[in-house]
Measured scan of single mutants.
Amino acid sequence: PEEVRRLVEELYRKGVSPEQVKKILKKQGIDEREIEKVLRRIG
C-alpha cells in the first residue's frame, strides 16, 4: 500500500538500515511482507 511505501522511503532516506526499517514498522503492526516488497523495489 501507498502508506507503507511512504513510511519505508522516509526511514530509508534518513539512513535507517533495511533491518531497522523492518523492525520499526513491524512494531507499528505493518505486515513484514509488505515492508520487504517495498525495500526490494527501493534497494
Results as ranks from 00 to 15, higher is better:
P1R: 09
K23S: 14
V4W: 07
V8M: 03
L11S: 01
K22P: 02
I42S: 05
R5K: 12
I35M: 03
E10T: 06
E9W: 05
I42C: 05
K26F: 07
V4D: 01
K26H: 10
I42G: 05
R13K: 13
E9V: 06
E10N: 07
V16G: 04
R40N: 15
E32W: 04
Q20A: 11
L25P: 00
L11K: 01
Y12M: 15
I30M: 11
L25G: 02
E34I: 12
K26W: 04
G15P: 01
Y12V: 15
K37H: 10
E19V: 06
K23I: 15
K27Q: 14
K23A: 14
K27P: 06
E2W: 05
V16T: 10
G43I: 15
G15L: 04
E2K: 10
E2D: 14
R41D: 15
V4L: 15
L39F: 02
K37F: 03
G15H: 06
V38W: 06
V16H: 14
E19K: 10
K37Y: 03
I30P: 00
R33G: 12
V8S: 01
L11I: 03
K27N: 14
V38C: 04
P1L: 14
Y12F: 14
V4A: 04
I42L: 15
Q28P: 01
E36S: 02
L39P: 02
Y12E: 05
P1D: 13
E36A: 02
E3W: 10
I42N: 04
E2R: 09
L39W: 00
P1Y: 14
Y12P: 00
E36V: 02
V16N: 10
G29M: 04
I24A: 06
E3G: 09
Q20I: 09
V8N: 00
R40V: 13
K23E: 15
E2F: 06
R33P: 04
R5H: 10
V21W: 02
Q28C: 03
I30W: 12
V4R: 03
R6H: 09
Q20P: 00
G29V: 01
V21M: 10
E3C: 04
V16E: 08
G15S: 04
V21D: 00
R41A: 15
E19F: 03
G29Q: 04
P1C: 04
K26M: 15
P18M: 12
E32K: 05
G15I: 01
G15W: 01
K23F: 04
R13M: 12
I30E: 01
E10Q: 08
K14P: 03
K27F: 09
I30N: 02
I24R: 05
V38E: 15
E36Y: 01
R41E: 15
G29N: 06
R40F: 03
K37T: 06
V8Y: 02
R5I: 11
L7D: 01
E10K: 07
V8F: 03
R6P: 02
E2M: 10
V4K: 01
D31G: 06
L25S: 00
E3T: 10
V38F: 03
D31H: 06
K23V: 14
R6C: 04
E32S: 07
S17H: 11
K22H: 09
R6N: 07
L11R: 00
Q28A: 12
L11C: 02
S17F: 05
V16A: 13
E9Y: 05
R5V: 13
E36T: 03
R33S: 12
R40M: 08
R33H: 12
G15M: 04
V8Q: 00
E10H: 07
L25H: 00
E34C: 06
I30F: 15
R13F: 13
V8D: 00
V4G: 01
V16S: 08
V16D: 04
R13D: 12
R13E: 13
R13S: 13
L39H: 03
R6F: 08
I35H: 00
E9L: 09
K23L: 08
P1Q: 13
P18I: 12
K14F: 06
L11P: 00
L25V: 01
G15E: 03
V38M: 10
V4P: 02
I42F: 07
L7M: 11
L39Q: 12
G43C: 08
E9S: 04
R13Q: 13
Y12N: 06
K23Q: 14
V38K: 01
P1A: 12
G29K: 03
K37P: 06
G15D: 05
R40C: 04
P18W: 09
K27L: 13
K22D: 02
S17Q: 11
S17E: 11
K26C: 03
V8G: 01
Y12G: 05
R33A: 14
L7R: 08
V4E: 01
R33V: 11
R13L: 12
K22W: 05
E19R: 08
R6W: 08
Y12H: 12
L25R: 00
E9A: 05
V16W: 11
K22Q: 06
K22S: 06
K27H: 12
I35L: 06
R40Y: 03
E34L: 13
R41L: 15
E10L: 07
K22T: 11
R5Y: 13
R41F: 10
G15C: 03
L39I: 15
K27A: 14
K37L: 11
I30A: 03
I35V: 09
Q20S: 11
E9T: 06
E36G: 01
I24H: 05
D31Y: 02
V4S: 02
E10I: 07
I35R: 00
G29D: 03
P1F: 14
I35S: 01
E9C: 08
I24P: 00
E32I: 07
S17K: 10
V38N: 11
E10Y: 07
R40H: 15
Q28K: 12
P1I: 13
G43Y: 01
G43N: 07
R5S: 10
I30Q: 03
E36I: 03
D31R: 04
K26L: 15
E19H: 11
L11Q: 02
R41N: 15
K37A: 11
V4I: 14
E9G: 03
K14Q: 13
V16Y: 14
